[in-house]
């Protein structure tokens, strides 16, 4: 067995070990990767930025703990931006373990809004975010396609009360809010096929502006909908979140993560190159023989 064929059959565990080493090194180092903002992300930011205080946005948190590393940064960046702009937010979680995600996000964002902060040169006072006035969390119901359709008629059909058991009619911000007609935009932050339902059963049927925050994997699949204007904006993966953070001038989870990305990507490319060098070299030898 020569060097090249050995190179080609390198045990996968060496690959894993190197990946760990590279990630840890990058994690502990201190450099920033500049982010180029794409139009898809800017469209969402601009839309939220242009809303008047008091308008309601609808944030569908359709992921669970397994995708939180990638999608939480988006939710945080977007919801924090909305709250700073005095918008109101309705949350739903249509994936099974989603409610925990919303709970956690609300807790963290509420904490960080208590502090005054300056974004893009504008100073914002710290403030208290109050359940029922600034936001409402409807909760989880299975069979998302049905839920999305029913909410086009009235949120009360499937959510007579919110996640915490308060009847919707006794929640101040929900009193005059019934369906998609009463909100400015739906932002679906999702790690699965719930997004399809939002497009066909939500946007397709009720014609509201729909923005998507997706995991990197899914992003490619949804470009056609961006082109056909069924979707007004799209954030893809950690990079999308980093772009939103950049626009909102609020560096957070996503920017931190980007630092590890670059070396890890380069490592994978290195592996691909090694594999190919090995492959081509052995093939060349075989031909000679």
């Amino acid at each position: 067995m020569n060097f090249f064929s050995k190179l080609m059959q390198l045990d996968r565990r060496w690959v894993y070990l190197l990946l760990v080493i590279v990630c840890l090194t990058a994690y502990y180092s201190d450099f920033t990767v500049p982010t180029i903002v794409e139009d898809e992300t800017k469209a969402i930011y601009d839309f939220i930025e242009a809303l008047e205080p008091g308008e309601i946005i609808f944030v569908a948190v359709d992921y669970d703990p397994s995708s939180q590393a990638e999608l939480h940064p988006m939710t945080y960046a977007l919801v924090e931006h909305a709250f700073r702009k005095d918008l109101k937010v309705i949350f739903t979680a249509l994936s099974q373990n989603g409610p925990g995600m919303v709970d956690q996000a609300i807790r963290d964002i509420t904490d960080s809004l208590k502090l005054p902060k300056t974004y893009n040169g504008i100073f914002y006072e710290g403030k208290d975010i109050v359940n029922g006035i600034d936001y409402t969390f409807l909760g989880y119901k299975p069979y998302y396609a049905i839920v999305i359709t029913a909410m086009g008629q009235d949120y009360r059909i499937l959510f007579p009360s919110d996640y915490y058991g308060t009847p919707l009619d006794s929640i101040p911000m929900m009193r005059r809010v019934h369906n998609y007609d009463d909100i400015a935009i739906v932002v679906d932050i999702s790690s699965g096929s719930i997004t399809d339902a939002w497009i066909s059963y939500g946007q397709g049927k009720f014609d509201f502006p729909l923005a998507l925050g997706l995991t990197g994997v899914m992003t490619a699949q949804y470009y056609p909908f961006l082109q056909s204007k069924q979707v007004m904006g799209l954030m893809g993966g950690l990079l999308g979140a980093a772009q939103y953070e950049q626009l909102a001038d609020n560096p957070g989870l996503a920017k931190d993560g980007m630092r590890v990305q670059l070396p890890a990507h380069l490592l994978i490319i290195l592996f691909i190159l090694i594999g190919n060098v090995g492959y081509l070299a052995t093939r060349y030898k075989e031909r000679k023989v």
């Binding site: 390198l10 996968r12 690959v15 894993y16 990946l19 890890a264 490592l267 994978i268 592996f271 691909i272 090694i274 594999g275 190919n276 492959y279 081509l280």
Partner: peptide, 15 residues
């Protein structure tokens, strides 16, 4: 993260 690395190493060959 690990599996995507090993898969690209194993499968991306210019055959």
């Amino acid at each position: 993260a690990f599996f995507i690395t090993s898969a690209s190493y194993r499968a991306f060959r210019a055959r």
